[in-house]
Simulated scan of single mutants.
Amino acid sequence: MTRSEFFLRSVIFVAIALAPFLIWLLFNVIVLATGAVLVATLMHVVATPFAKLRLPRGVALALSGLLIASIIGGTFFVFGRTMAAEFHDVLRRAEETANAISAEISRAGLSDYLPSSFGENISVSGVIGHFFTVSTEAVLGGLVAFFAGVFLASEPKLYSEGFTLLFAPQWRKEARETLGHVATALRRWLLGQMIEMVTVGVMSGVAVWLIGLPSPIALGAISGLSEFIPYIGPILAIFPSVAVAATIGPYPMLWTILAYLAIHQLDGNMIMPLIQRQLVRVPPALMLISIATFGTLFGLGATIFAAPLTVVIYVAVIKLYLRDTLGEQTPLPGEKAQTPSPW
């Protein structure tokens, strides 16, 4: 072994050994990059119908951006004041429910069996307010991710080719192919998530409105947005609705629980499989373990981007390991399965 070969192998070994530490150290940068890629992917998804009309790419992207901005701005203009009042009402009713539960625990004498800190200085509004507090750093990070996503969407080939140049010439073909498969999977996953979020949000809002709960728009929005975190988010979204129903009476609370169970059974057994069959499917156990891992390692906020990061890792493993290394003909998102998939 020559000195240059020994030095190169030493550098590769040190880089592999330091990779986990660098991921931990630069996770905020990874989150920003993920946000930028999602913004670019969203713009591409919305621009696809315009591109099919044979409009220039720049015009299609501009129309995509205008359409997204119009939808967001129009939603806030029409429902913004109503949703703000309804979110405040949901928070107030959740606080009332928490206080009632705490009082019942004390009245039943169960507080002696609970930790001494339980129920002391705990405020639902304080906890939720702290969770949804938007810091200046988060706002700046969101702006960086947004504008970076716009630049990515406007010149994707520039950045994809720049990424492939980081690899040795003999690896650039595989890197380019992998990047293409990852981009396709993210587009299909994001489209599926958008369909599922809107569907579940509308069904939840209509259900609580029929039951007679106040603030149906806010409760529907909470249910829809929670679908962005697969499996775990929808479970957590049940609690605000149940807390609101508890302030009205036991029967509305029972009907709310049954309604959400029915909606999520319908979602899990019909809507989600139908969407995943047509778009992209990640094994549920793998997604759950991945979300739990990201949350444990990097905090609760990391679970928001755990799903798209899992899609990226999942596609990269299939392409680089199962296909290129083991020679398995495992289908990737957007491809028809020619042989049974091990997943």
Rank of each mutant, 00 (worst) to 15 (best):
Y159N: 07
P156I: 03
V78M: 10
E95N: 13
A98C: 04
V45S: 05
A148W: 04
P156L: 07
V144L: 15
V78F: 14
A98Y: 12
F87T: 06
F118C: 07
G142N: 06
V139P: 03
G162F: 02
L110T: 03
S117T: 12
L140I: 15
S123Y: 06
A108E: 10
A47L: 04
S106H: 09
V124I: 13
L67D: 02
L110G: 08
F87D: 02
S135Y: 05
G58L: 13
V134T: 14
L152M: 11
M83Y: 13
R54G: 00
K157T: 14
S160A: 11
V139I: 15
A47I: 02
T82V: 14
R92F: 06
V46M: 05
L140R: 15
R107S: 07
I122C: 00
P156T: 04
A100N: 14
T48Y: 09
A84I: 14
A98S: 12
G142Y: 02
F76Q: 12
T97H: 09
L61E: 01
A62K: 00
I71W: 04
S117I: 08
I105V: 14
G129P: 02
S64T: 05
N121I: 00
G129W: 05
E137F: 11
F146T: 12
K157P: 00
I68K: 02
S70Y: 11
F151L: 15
I72C: 11
V139D: 07
G126Q: 02
R81S: 15
G73C: 12
A138R: 12
E86F: 03
G109T: 03
S64P: 08
P49I: 07
L140C: 13
L66Y: 04
